[in-house]
């Protein structure tokens, strides 16, 4: 695996893009997103991966993972969900969330494993 470039002098330690200000490419429910990946993963990859998604759904679980927080949204599938890895500025907000609560999360889609995976996520309403 591995890594980088960027000529030394130009090295910019800029923070990751804050998605609060970014307009989503797609707005959809957690169930719809998961269904699209289940029906045709390669087609869903082509449509969603790298794109900013605003996903609405109910919270299945807020997972504390290695000093970070991942929100799992429910889908029609009993086991799989939408896995939303929060960006650091959202960790405090996540403390206030409850299971079964309806929320919207904006994040960048990176594909599907067990769950459809979103990164760099922000919580839109809660």
């Amino acid at each position: 695996m591995i890594i980088v470039i960027l000529i030394a002098l130009l090295q910019v330690f800029k923070p990751a893009q804050n998605l609060h200000k970014v307009k989503p490419d797609y707005t959809l429910t957690s169930s719809q997103l998961f269904a699209d990946f289940s029906e045709n993963e390669s087609q869903a990859n082509a449509k969603y991966v790298g794109k900013i998604l605003l996903v609405k759904g109910e919270i299945k679980e807020v997972i504390h993972a290695n000093d970070e927080k991942v929100i799992l949204l429910k889908t029609e599938d009993i086991f799989s969900g939408i896995s939303c890895r929060l960006t650091g500025s959202e960790f405090l907000k996540a403390e206030l969330l409850n299971k079964n609560q309806s929320i919207a999360v904006k994040g960048q889609c990176s594909g599907k494993l067990i769950d459809v995976v979103l990164n760099n996520c922000v919580i839109i309403n809660y």
């Binding site: 470039i5 090295q11 330690f13 800029k14 594909g111 760099n120």
Partner: peptide, 26 residues
């Protein structure tokens, strides 16, 4: 199993190079 695009870098600019030039994650 791991998605290449869900690696987050301390150095934000590194993510792009990692995905595009080195890992060809598309």
């Amino acid at each position: 199993a791991v998605l290449i695009k869900s690696f987050e870098f301390s150095l934000a600019t590194a993510k792009e190079h990692f995905n595009e030039s080195y890992m060809e994650s598309d």
